[in-house]
Design a protein around this nucleic acid. Structure first.
Length: 111
DNA sequence: CGTATGACTTTTA
DNA sequence: GTAAAAGCCATAC
């Protein structure tokens, strides 16, 4: 079975990201690994970049890089959204207690 | 079908 | 702790 196709790659990314509860964050690498491909972290970010503004069900703001820092060109908006959700963000755009806020991979890839 | 790009990660110094 | 380079793979042209 190793048919891990890219069929709706974005769709899978959105689905996983949508599973992240408010107050928690995840990383591109985690999402990619949850998909079964740790190397596609970039493509995860790509999918979110291509994410249309209509997709309000996808909390793209809860996705940060492996360093727990916002990789978006304009971290201000994302940081503001995260703070609004209860996630403390440093002035440098880094999530406080990132390791603790980082959701478990099992929970993400669950079902 | 080949080349270029990128909201990343990891390794090495 | 920071800095630079390589790797990786889906999308766009």
């Amino acid at each position: 079975m190793a048919r891990v196709v890219t069929r709706g790659f974005h769709e899978r990314v959105f689905t996983l990201v949508a599973r992240v509860p408010a107050g928690f964050v995840t990383t591109y690498g985690d999402v990619a690994e949850a998909l079964g491909l740790r190397r596609v972290a970039r493509q995860v970010g790509w999918a979110l970049a291509a994410l249309p503004a209509k997709r309000k069900d996808v909390p793209w703001q809860r996705v940060v890089n492996g360093k727990g820092e916002i990789s978006v060109v304009d971290p201000t908006r994302q940081a503001r959204l995260l703070r609004k959700e209860g996630v403390a963000v440093d002035a440098r755009g880094r999530v406080r207690d990132f390791a603790a806020r980082r959701i478990a991979l099992e929970f993400l890839a669950k079902r």
